[in-house]
Design a protein around this nucleic acid. Structure first.
Lengths: 218, 218
DNA sequence: GCATCAATGTCGCCT
DNA sequence: AGGCGACGTTGATGC
């Protein structure tokens, strides 16, 4: 990884045009060739960047980075304050825990408890993709459950499409929908209600709590 | 801006849990206090981070970064290879040109010229969000225009939802749809046509050209 | 401060 | 390689 501290100006032309007036910044070049220009503030997003794969040409204090898509990043180095490079080797990578898949797993395991439903199948396949949970309600009616961390309009549409296909199956019909999320946005509530889809908010920590309590019983 | 090259391991607990095994990485601390841990590859996104506002406590080779939301980032420094700091001052910031807002503004200003429509209102509100442009066609029919940089299936769906709601208003009905974008993807074309939604591609440079020509007249 | 929406989104999975 | 969906999305804007 190469780190350059420099007074520089930057120009990007590609999917849009953007430019940076001269100022002191950090230019980071990673081993895969990607280039990022960071200011001394503003979260982790760089001001300008060019991802790999690309080609960096350096001449007369001007860096020109181009990629196969025809995007161009030009960095004009007015004064280089520091220029260092470090060998890091490959990174073992990030381990994550607590994403949507976990939410779905917890809900599947405690469907009756949290949703008042009986689980028929997880990832029930349809022609346009798998439904997160297929359940039966107390009245025996089939219910397709879509699990999201955040319930958004997209999720309602997605569930709507599943329902459309599921309801073509005479063995399942009628199928109703339920959107389950840690929070359901107001607009998604409106659309869901409009489409006859129920929505519920669940608390991930509560689910996890219930899970560990259950585990302790064994 | 402080740059630390170190062999370190990282743990994050907050909206999810994530951990990084020991390896050599860059730890970046910006003037606003935000912390980012970068590997030597993988675009511009850091492996782990903690945005401002936060509090960084450094003791015995362990950095503990906490924020008001209760998230915790722990960096265990096994070996510090380099630790430097640079004064950069404030950044003048990025100037962008060619984002959706510009496109919408240009189209709104020259609706008749580029779309053959008369503008009724920008950002016309519905229960599920605002329509970019509400216009009237030469025949007096109301037309909802959705503006995108790229016309994708999502945009067609979005416009479809607006139309569904707009067409419930007896004062507006019938409302037709038009998708305007710099480029409309093949799948979006098919879906739009299927839904009776017109689509048009516009050239941003041409729009801007027309704009500056108009300006020169005054 | 919350809700909403765009983004040079990025990233990972799957076909 | 392209489509699709999640993301600790981030960032900006309007209310």
């Amino acid at each position: 990884m190469r780190l350059v501290i420099a007074h520089c100006s930057v120009q990007y032309t590609g999917r849009l045009s953007a430019q940076l007036p001269p100022a002191t910044r950090l230019v980071m070049v990673k081993a895969d060739g990607c280039v990022a220009v960071h200011a001394d503030g503003g979260a982790y997003k760089p001001l300008n960047w060019m991802n790999a794969p690309n080609r960096l040409v350096e001449a007369d204090g001007v860096w020109i980075v181009t990629n196969p898509k025809g995007e161009i990043l030009t960095i004009t180095m007015e004064e280089v304050i520091s220029d260092t490079a470090w060998e890091m080797g490959p990174d073992p990578g990030l381990q994550k825990d607590g994403v949507e898949a976990h939410l779905q797993a917890l809900l599947a395991a405690h469907c009756d408890q949290h949703l008042g439903l009986r689980l028929v199948r997880r990832e029930y396949p349809t022609d346009i993709g798998p439904v997160d949970l297929l359940c039966k309600g107390p009245d025996g009616v089939t219910i397709a459950v879509e699990v999201k961390r955040r319930g958004d309009i997209d999720g309602v549409e997605q569930l709507g499409r599943y329902l459309e296909f599921l309801n073509r199956d005479p063995l399942l019909r009628p199928v109703r929908g339920m959107l389950v999320a840690q929070s359901v946005r107001p607009q998604a509530r409106v659309l869901a209600t409009d489409r006859g889809i129920r929505w519920i908010e669940v608390d991930y920590d509560l689910l996890r709590g219930a899970e560990s309590r259950d585990l302790r019983l064994f």
